[in-house]
């Protein structure tokens, strides 16, 4: 209630579109299944610890993919891991979003040239919504990535797109 507390003179109705309400609800409580893989995971941990506090954006870590809305792939994706990632992604309920954190999961990062066992980009395995660059990205960058994702969700529409 906070901000709106005692702001109206009489009991009232707020008018909004169903779409906006849904989007607002979705974007303000994104439960994440943290998928910490490598060095970037440490920065992800730092983001949810003191100082940066992921919680204030409604992001709560959830160990199970079945109750999560976003998955943050943070770190180097290897061939051995890629098939597992796909399986976890498939277990998440729709609507689901993916943030790819760090150069490694964006494109292979420092390992793009000689990495015989590194997948050169997460998007070869699952679709990605937001890419956060950096090696490792600072916690602020991850927060920015999350805000970008929220923006994307805010603009989603229930209306079927017309075929052009």
């Amino acid at each position: 209630m906070g901000l709106l507390d005692k702001q109206f003179s009489d009991e009232n109705i707020i008018l909004t579109k169903a779409e906006d309400l849904l989007n607002w609800a979705r974007l303000s409580s994104l439960w994440q299944v943290g998928f910490g893989l490598a060095c970037c995971a440490i920065e992800m941990m730092a983001t949810s610890a003191s100082h940066y506090d992921f919680d204030r954006f409604g992001v709560i870590p959830r160990p199970s993919p079945r109750q999560a809305d976003i998955i943050i792939i943070s770190g180097t994706v290897t061939l051995k891991m890629a098939t597992r990632i796909k399986r976890i992604y498939e277990q998440m309920p729709d609507p689901k979003y993916v943030i790819s954190m760090g150069s490694c999961s964006n494109s292979g990062g420092p390992y793009w040239e000689h990495g015989y066992h590194v997948v050169k980009g997460m998007d070869r395995v699952i679709p990605v919504d937001v890419y956060v660059p950096g090696c490792p990205p600072r916690p602020e960058a991850l927060l920015e990535g999350l805000l970008k994702l929220q923006e994307k969700i805010r603009n989603e529409s229930l209306v079927k797109k017309e075929k052009v």
Binding site: L79, A82, T83, K120, R124
Partner: peptide, 8 residues
Amino acid sequence: FYMGIKVP
């Protein structure tokens, strides 16, 4: 390729 994922 490894299991359908492009390697290089």
